[in-house]
Simulated assay, not measured.
Amino acid sequence: MATLIDTPTGPGRLHIYESDGSERGTVILGHGAGGSQQTPDALLLAEVLPRDGWRTVLVDMPWRVAGRKVATSPPTLDRGWQPLVEAAKGEGRLVLGGRSAGARVACRTAGPLRADAVLCLSFPLHPPGKPERSRAEELATPCEIGLPVLVIQGRRDPFGTPEEVRAAAPDAVDVVPVSAAHSAPKNLDEMLIPVRAFLADLG
């Protein structure tokens, strides 16, 4: 089910996949700076997680709904994301996450939105070839309030290898390497198995 929600930066779209049985919580995933939620990993999670009791919501950010090709600035992204999360969350635990820019937004807003955990399907630690422009502070933000964080990171990711992310992140961040660059791994079980284990540990 797709639903348009008004935000201060324009309407965003929620694709809602209800849980099959007793609802453990809601997983809300944002997309990257150049794409939409039609990625193999996000679509697989939307198919599988509801069977585990997780209501799953894939978000199309307002800039994407408006037909723009490039994401807006981080403060604007956050202003659009927060009302979408408030509209999408249900009962039980709240897990915020996403791919690339969506992961950054989730990390920055996990505290104000009272999330219970953060799931990064890839985290852009730095622009390609520019490790000095680190975004490690954003990745550390959920840890500062005691939230568990899982990062699924491609071994060939030009935005930061798993080793780079581990070195820059707090010890509380769990980094799982997968056979990919900055996109979803071809073997989606590399992503799915640790994500399901991470959610199961939330209780």
Rank of each mutant, 00 (worst) to 15 (best):
D60Q: 12
A180V: 00
E91G: 13
I193C: 11
W54H: 08
L45M: 09
R155G: 12
R196P: 08
G12W: 00
A71R: 10
L113Q: 00
A140K: 13
G102S: 10
H15I: 05
G30V: 02
F159A: 09
S100R: 06
G80F: 11
L84N: 03
K186Y: 06
G111S: 10
L43P: 05
V57N: 10
L125Q: 11
F159D: 07
I152R: 13
G30R: 06
G154Y: 03
L44K: 08
S36G: 15
R68E: 15
G146H: 07
G97W: 12
E47G: 11
D171P: 14
A110W: 07
R51A: 15
T109G: 06
G53V: 00
L125I: 02
D189F: 14
E86R: 15
G129I: 02
R114F: 09
V195R: 10
V173M: 05
P124F: 10
L49N: 02
Q153D: 06
L192I: 03
V176Q: 06
G53E: 01
D78L: 12
L14T: 01
D41F: 11
V85F: 00
C120S: 12
A200R: 15
A103R: 03
P194I: 02
A200Y: 00
T56G: 14
G10Q: 11
S22T: 12
V165T: 13
P75H: 09
G10N: 05
H126C: 09
G12T: 00
P11K: 01
P83E: 02
T72L: 13
L119Y: 03
V48I: 14
S19K: 02
E164R: 09
E164C: 09
S183D: 15
P124I: 04
R24L: 06
E132G: 15
S73H: 07
R155Q: 14
R68Y: 08
Q153T: 12
G21L: 01
P8A: 04
S36Q: 02
I16D: 09
F123P: 03
G25D: 02
A88P: 04
K89P: 00
R108M: 14
F198A: 00
E138F: 11
I145P: 08
R196F: 05
S22C: 07
R99D: 08
Q37P: 06
G154F: 13
F198Y: 10
C143R: 02
G129V: 03
I28Y: 04
A71I: 04
K130T: 09
S22A: 13
R79W: 13
L121A: 09
V70S: 14
A88F: 06
A181C: 08
S179L: 12
